[in-house]
């Protein structure tokens, strides 16, 4: 297990994730106190603080530290990407969208607070994400903060996350090819991971070249995340996944295993992980350890 390069210390990914996720949870809790009207703020907190691995915020902080920035500089943006992720789930779960009653083992937001509050709470989280970055980012120039805001807006809007949702909705029941499947995942999943990493790199003081390398890294692991998700759905039992297995098959959803077969899907996942990690090759190996571990975690997770 000990590598021949004796300077390289083993990286404890689990401790790293727990430590960063705890910091993020504290920051999220503090960012949205219950104000009047209480119910709308409670609805925002209900979904925002419902748990979750905080992969997006940790990516944001890790990218910031990789390019030499302080984690605290990235914290408002790390919270903002989680707020956006949460609001998109709140709206996605609505009866007129995916109509989901449960999320992470808990009743979905509209089941608890009603549809109108779930819509308003989501809208408020979306707006607050920008307010939070604009007012609470410290230790970096206004120019960088504006650039981060612009990036986030681009990645979550009609050229990013929303575009993915729209194409996904419009593809239901239609024949989806590989290109379209990739478009959906690049936008629906990868775009927000891209924002997370790019915001961290911008605020950490990264050069344009570094920011673009990390952007490519994020797009690869974003797609990787979805390919692995598709593979797990057909290869694991519901018990192993902690959610209903074989869902994609039942709903006749287009997936990578359906289009490529399991073996080719696994090869594709390997390729994406390799491409992602190649982007990190010119960074300091030890500083890049968290992002390398995150990519491997996404690639080799079992649920």
């Amino acid at each position: 297990k000990i590598k021949d390069t004796h300077v390289e210390l083993p990286f404890d990914f689990k401790s790293y994730m727990v430590e960063k996720a705890n910091l993020v949870n504290l920051a999220l809790d503090a960012a949205i106190p219950v104000k009047e009207p209480a119910k709308i703020h409670e609805s925002m907190r209900y979904s925002l603080l419902a748990g979750g691995k905080r992969v997006r915020p940790v990516l944001c902080i890790a990218a910031c530290e990789l390019v030499g920035g302080d984690a605290l500089t990235a914290m408002p943006s790390a919270c903002a990407v989680e707020m956006i992720h949460t609001m998109s789930l709140m709206h996605d779960d609505l009866p007129c969208m995916d109509n989901d009653d449960f999320r992470r083992g808990k009743p979905t937001n509209h089941m608890v607070y009603g549809e109108q509050v779930a819509i308003l709470g989501g809208d408020a989280l979306l707006a607050f994400a920008f307010e939070h970055i604009a007012t609470n980012t410290k230790g970096v120039s206004s120019a960088r903060i504006l650039r981060a805001i612009s990036e986030l807006a681009k990645c979550i809007g009609s050229e990013g996350l929303v575009a993915g949702q729209v194409v996904d909705i419009c593809s239901e029941g239609a024949d989806v090819g590989l290109d379209q499947l990739e478009y959906i995942h690049h936008h629906k999943t990868a775009a927000l991971l891209e924002a997370s990493v790019v915001l961290g790199a911008i605020l950490g003081g990264g050069s344009d070249a570094e920011i673009e390398k990390l952007r490519t890294f994020a797009r690869s692991i974003g797609l990787l995340f979805q390919v692995v998700d598709d593979i797990l759905d057909v290869t694991k039992s519901s018990d192993e996944l902690g959610k209903t297995a074989g869902k994609d098959l039942v709903s006749d959803k287009t997936t990578y295993p359906k289009l490529l077969g399991i073996d080719k899907s696994r090869e594709f996942a390997e390729k994406l992980n390799k491409e992602a990690q190649e982007q990190l090759s010119e960074f300091d190996r030890q500083k890049a350890a968290p992002l390398i571990a995150l990519a491997n975690y996404i690639a080799y997770r079992q649920n």
Binding site: E36, P37, I40, Q116, A127, A134, S142, I145, L146
Partner: peptide, 28 residues
Amino acid sequence: VPETQLLSVINEIARAVGSTGMAAGQFV
């Protein structure tokens, strides 16, 4: 427009549409 002022503008709009602004009005 200096960058700091632009940040204030973004902050102002986000606050106005948010959970203590227009969204609060619609909720009540």
